[in-house]
Amino acid sequence: MSIQIRNVTKTFGSFRALDDVSADIPTGELVALLGPSGSGKTTLLRLIAGLEDLDPGQGSIRYYEEDITGTPVRKRRVGFVFQHYALFRHMSVFENVAFGLKVLPRDKRPAKPQIKNRVHELLRLVQLDGLAGRFPSQLSGGQRQRVALARALAVEPRVLLLDEPFGALDAKVRAELRQWIRHLHEELRITSVFVTHDQDEAMEIADRVVVMSQGRIEQIGSPAEVYHTPKTAFVVNFLGQVNTFDGRANGRVIEFAGIRVDVADGRDRDGDVRVFVRPHEFELSRTANGTPGLTATILRIYAAGSVARLDLQLTDGRLITAHVPQDRFAALYASNGDRVFASPRRVHVF
């Protein structure tokens, strides 16, 4: 079930949480709403769910072709998973998952044996079938979140909405659970939207990422698109580490930190600009090799990991970070205090 969000505005008192937001969420995709806290991502999710009302007359939300702007949450058939699980603590795991079926109107409610089968089927899906009789307080965080997911899936939701689903879990469980959610999504193919402030999480499992800031959408695209071709300074900054410079543009030539580079994106610019270079987009060499490079001294080397991470100090005292593949780093024969040239292979200019 696709979701269309059209010109949605939401204010809380004088605070504008969402400002004229539009987005399309295609059927069967797993979409991440990514942004820092206060960017409006949770508000947007709650509006899609119907847990929050739109400002009157400000935009619309549709599921496929059906306008559900005024439909209350309980009639929308959404599955909602909360950051802190929101399980019913006086009910067993079984009763939690069965809840959505037991509150159906009598004529739509399945008979008891069917409910039982359905609940066990769902518990098998989330790999908790042995724990049907337990209470939420007897489960770990990861198990609770899977119960919450099974409970949400029980009502056969048209869309599945997850609010920071991994936020309350520790790092290892978090990594496992997000892989598992990805697999589950491939199995079920329910249109799913999840909120996160963790860019790795969004990049790793989403088909499409909606980057948000201050109540507006900065960019929508696949993880590769938003990472490699960011459309705004905010997106470059938010998605991973980046070195920032002040520069001046003159047509297609950008001057910053004492060097000039051509920007090959076909756009002419003039005046003051911000220049961004990601750490892995620097090419390091011991001698000037003709390409424009920043002269720097190595302050510190972090050699452990898949890439070598270097803190560099420029001649004007500024600090930058560069990431170099381990084999390239070994070929440099560099150590602390050595002088190197850092040539940006690629720059992002705004």
Binding site: L51, F80, F82, F99
Partner: peptide, 14 residues
């Protein structure tokens, strides 16, 4: 938590 009421509502409970 107010969330459990929202959870119940999202599951279709009046």
């Amino acid at each position: 938590e107010a969330e459990i009421e929202e959870a119940a509502a999202s599951l279709g409970a009046n």
